[in-house]
């Protein structure tokens, strides 16, 4: 989110406190002092993770402290994990395989990179899944494993889990 603060000491610290109070996790802060505006305010870009449904409460808390919230960009699917699939991916209805993840509402296939060396030979693909939470990612991977078992596709999971 992009915040507008008064250019006086302690303003940034004051703006960060409501975020931690509400259980948010700050990932990055971009604070450029030379971009002050005519009204002697400055803008700060903050990337943060928030618990579900806490965004409105945070915006209210910031406004009470006199911080203007200029813009909020939402990224719902924060978890990302890539897996490798080996098998007859096209002939076992790849669209259906992808749909089973997309239909969940909590996870989506965001990337697919497929290599098909020869007709009738197994193809290999890297599939990238995005999901809302780590639990959702585990659930999505479990669904993919079930689909793969039905279609005789080998799934290679990463060691170390989601990013």
């Amino acid at each position: 989110m992009k915040l507008e603060l008064k250019d006086t000491p302690g303003q940034l610290l004051g703006a960060l406190k409501p975020i931690s109070d509400i259980g948010g996790n700050i990932i990055t802060i971009i604070h450029q002092r030379d971009q002050t505006t005519a009204e002697n305010t400055l803008t700060v870009d903050i990337v943060l993770e928030l618990p579900e449904k806490k965004l409105d409460a945070l915006i209210d808390a910031l406004r009470e402290r006199g911080c203007g919230v200029i813009r909020v960009g939402k990224e719902r699917l924060l978890q990302k994990q890539s897996l490798i699939m080996i098998g007859h991916l096209m002939h076992t209805d790849l669209t259906d395989t992808v749909d089973r993840i997309d239909q969940t509402g909590f996870a989506e296939v965001s990337e697919l990179h497929m290599v098909m060396p020869a007709i009738d030979e197994p193809s290999t693909a890297k599939i990238t899944i995005r999901a809302i939470s780590p639990e959702d990612m585990l659930h999505a991977v479990r669904i993919l494993r079930e689909v793969a078992a039905q279609k005789d596709i080998l799934i290679l999971e990463p060691l170390g889990g989601a990013e």
Binding site: I84, I86, H113, V115, T124, K126
Partner: peptide, 16 residues
């Protein structure tokens, strides 16, 4: 026994 060379290349492209 069904690991393909393509799978190793795809992994390698991510430093794995």
């Amino acid at each position: 026994d069904s690991i393909t060379l393509e799978a190793l290349s795809l992994a390698e492209s991510e430093g794995a």
